[in-house]
Nucleic acid binder design. Structure first.
Lengths: 206, 206
DNA sequence: CATCGCGTAGGACGACTGTCCTAATACTCC
DNA sequence: GGAGTATTAGGACAGTCGTCCTACGCGATG
């Protein structure tokens, strides 16, 4: 913190504020107050608010990439790596309950604003999707790897959204257990686990 | 449409705009343009923007309640009713892919704004949660009914968020099939279905 | 026809927003 | 110490926001 560049401080403060208050709702004045610099001076470091957003997303992408690299280093087993991802909602339960998922909420907001940086923010989802897909591929589920990656992503988004809405920590832990259980089944025998739908599946519907 | 009150027209237009563009991002000017009335004249019908939001949420609650009532009338089987809920993400796939879930995105936005109407909007989640809980109770899963209701809610939120981010209709259908499959298993034998975690479950984690 | 009141139009208001400009400061190297 | 660059402060700008006010149109009632 002490040795951080002014630019880095701005990005970090903006990151936090965008996460907690949303992008549009966060004004330059609020960021300036957080970094203790004057409002007009932003334009020495960034040429617009969108520019700050771009830097924030880039920083988040960097941080996530580093996180995934570390998981890969600490966990050789692909299944263990996937479990690490599943555990995120527990690890970050405090922030998630207060502010939701940083990736999901930002993407949703930028979509509603029709903001040009939406694609860049979508890269955060794509990053996790590709990483999970690779882990499932290594597990031997090559053909379904992408669908499984999406399923795990959907799990985390669903849990984050509801944990945020109801501020329910027990719910998070229950759902994580459920997902761990499903992963165990799926790793042992893909066909036995719920969701390994045969190719027809006309409709189990009413 | 033709016979609708000006007030009703305002609420309907605001509902659509809040959904598509977000609450904060939607200005009075935008609503006025949609309803073809003058901007300043809003305050004859509503005393503030928050007041419009309150009316929009109330209208959404009404509509959802009517929808659930209709499901109950058309579908006597609790399992069939739950499947109807699961099918929402398919039925509304176009809007969901374009704008996300109306309940989830509104709740998330109001939370970030620290808006007083957040609790009111949370009532939309609570409505579905209680309704699903009752269906699971009738299915005989009384003790787990609330947890199961939350699980189904999380499913819908996760699917909506990702379908929105990736605009992927096939993903929606896959996940819906997966959920139908899980429901079939769970209804037949709760212990066999993934997620029926025993009470200890120290850690399936690595 | 006159009166009343509901509904509307359109502009004015202060407060904010992101942006830009200019003057002053801090720091570095000769 | 002085010159030059890097960084900052603070105000001015035009635009938009939610809000409020006043005057006008219009239909019903007497």
């Amino acid at each position: 913190m002490g040795g951080a560049t002014t630019r880095e401080q701005i990005v970090e403060a903006a990151d936090q504020l965008f996460y907690r208050q949303g992008y549009e709702h966060t004004s330059f004045a609020a960021i300036a107050q957080a970094v203790h610099i004057s409002r007009g001076n932003f334009y020495y470091h960034f040429k617009s608010k969108d520019d700050i957003l771009g830097a924030v997303i880039a920083a988040r992408l960097d941080a996530r990439r580093r996180m995934l690299k570390q998981w890969e280093a600490e966990e050789a087993d692909p299944l263990g790596r996937i479990r690490r991802f599943v555990e995120i909602v527990v690890t970050n339960r405090a922030d998630i309950q207060s502010y939701g998922c940083p990736v999901g909420t930002l993407t949703t907001e930028l979509a509603k604003l029709e903001h040009p940086a939406l694609d860049q923010a979508g890269g955060l989802f794509t990053l996790f999707r590709a990483w999970l897909r690779e882990q499932f591929t290594r597990l031997g589920h090559e053909t379904q790897a992408d669908a499984l990656a999406m399923h795990v992503l959907a799990f985390s988004q669903g849990v984050a959204t509801l944990a945020h809405a109801f501020r329910d920590e027990d719910f998070i832990r229950r759902e994580v257990q459920r997902m761990h259980h499903w992963l165990s089944r799926y790793a042992a025998d893909p066909d036995s686990a719920t969701g390994a739908v045969p190719d027809d599946t006309a409709s189990a519907n009413a």
